[in-house]
Design a protein around this nucleic acid. Structure first.
Lengths: 128, 128, 128, 128
DNA sequence: GTGGTCTAGACCACC
DNA sequence: GTGGTCTAGACCACA
């Protein structure tokens, strides 16, 4: 389910964090779900266990996971906070997109137009 | 004109590349314009000449600049390709935004709505 | 295995690039092969690590290598593209040769004749 | 007649030298022909007079030109040496081509075959 | 003066 | 340990 692109510029640990966060807010990993053990996930993805440990610790710091020593990491996010969390994540990536576009000198109208066009193509299953 | 944020997480050379690219596609640096010399820009921005050289060489690789050994770097982007280049850059960041948003399970409507709201706030000079 | 001619007019980094490219297209460095680390190769060849880094980064840009930050550089060229790449490289140098010869006013027959003669001498181990 | 490609990697002075040498061995500039003056050529090509002077001096050293002080540079190559000179130049570029091809691991047969194919296309005015 | 190459060595993030 | 960024400064070829 989790996948790593070794050639990517984005660090392995960041790729993992994003995917796990996504799994949680999309309810694929429900609350109290037990995450795969560090060693298990490390051997499956063929990456260093230290990297997995780092990811779990950071997600714990962000409030997505909770560690129970001796028995593993568990999903913590409560149902009622999911919507808020999703919106916060969306706001973050939207801000990033806007700031880059503004940097390139695009107007708000151009952004909306380009985005709408792309989304329509996707809805129509025509990813040209 | 060009500015560096030394405290930023994004590398100095990347900050510079973006600003110069923007200057070119927005026609502030027209084609055949001579860029400041490596040493000149380095001393002005108080960063190492090697860093500037790296920036110029990479922009040369991307087709934005051309080096004439012994006489400087010159803007290369042809007029007719500018619009195309701007659109390509916008398409790239838009695709990145969409793919991340889709990963989070948002619908096209939500994206447009969120983005429109943010852009209106910006137009109204209310960057909350 | 890799060797540097310090006295040559062709830059060290260019010498290295050619040798590594050759090693890859001739399958001496197979795909996924891990290249020697920057520091390792630098100390072995007694040249500066920055020079090796430049070589690796440029070969990455050309699609021959892939960097995995924290773990090294790896050969990337896919098997099925190797033949194509070799042919492209040959076509490039052949075009360069032909255009220079045409400039000098030689006919195709003269080119073939001169080249054949030289190649026969090489085959006969007589590099006069 | 003489043309400079400012964007080229090959230095301006080298471009000029090649073109003038070619003009001489191909008899376009016959023996005793008076070359354009340094200032004249410099202003025509929009390059630095020092560069032209360097070119003329070097061609003088190679035996292609002869300077008569106060009256300019004159073509020197005698008719009977032209054939020899042309062959020497061809041998040089052929050696360069062969050494590069051998570096890439090509066999003599492959070289001849590729070259013949390319030359046939040229003869047939089909530069694909 | 310009860019191009190379060295020496620092500090950082990542694995 | 790895690569990535950046500094400081040398020497060269070119215009």
């Amino acid at each position: 389910m989790l996948k790593i692109d070794a050639g990517s510029a984005v660090p392995v640990y960041e790729q993992l964090k994003r995917q796990i966060r996504l799994g949680i807010v999309s309810d694929r990993y429900p609350s109290d779900h037990r995450m795969p053990s560090i060693r298990e996930l490390a051997s499956q993805l063929k990456i260093n266990p230290n990297t997995i440990a780092k990811v779990y610790r950071q997600l714990e710091g962000e409030g997505f996971l909770m560690s129970k020593s001796g028995s593993g990491f568990f999903v913590k996010l409560e149902r009622e906070h999911m919507g808020k969390t999703r919106r916060r994540l969306l706001a973050e990536i939207a801000d990033e997109f806007i700031s880059q576009a503004v940097e390139l000198g695009f107007t708000p109208e151009e952004l909306i137009k380009t985005l709408s066009a792309k989304l329509e193509r996707i809805s129509a299953n025509d990813p040209a």
